[in-house]
Amino acid sequence: MSETELADPLMTAEHWKAAGRTVAIATVIQTWGSAPRPAGSHLVIDGEGNFEGSVSGGCVEGAVIGEAQDVIADGKPKMLEFGVADETAWRVGLSCGGTIRVYVERLG
């Protein structure tokens, strides 16, 4: 499984932090329906919006990256929920019809 070593978000997060960058880690903690990425999937984001990994296969990454900037700034973790029911709240939805909860926390 050399693929996991090539793009390993948790290794990336540690390297970024060691290089002095600010980092947030987003984790899928719950899914309903046909969510594209399983619970446990990570997206790591730095203070400039660079990212590695995925929480949805592309549908909601942009919103998570935006929220991550607040988390990096104030250090308070956030619980985000995406799905059909919350489309109006977040203005992003999962095209597959599933729902996911994403926990975003600052590293360090």
Partner: peptide
């Protein structure tokens, strides 16, 4: 997440 936690996790995975 504390950096120590991430480090410990990455060490175990490695």
């Amino acid at each position: 997440m504390r950096i120590e936690t991430l480090h410990a996790l990455n060490l175990a995975r490695h």
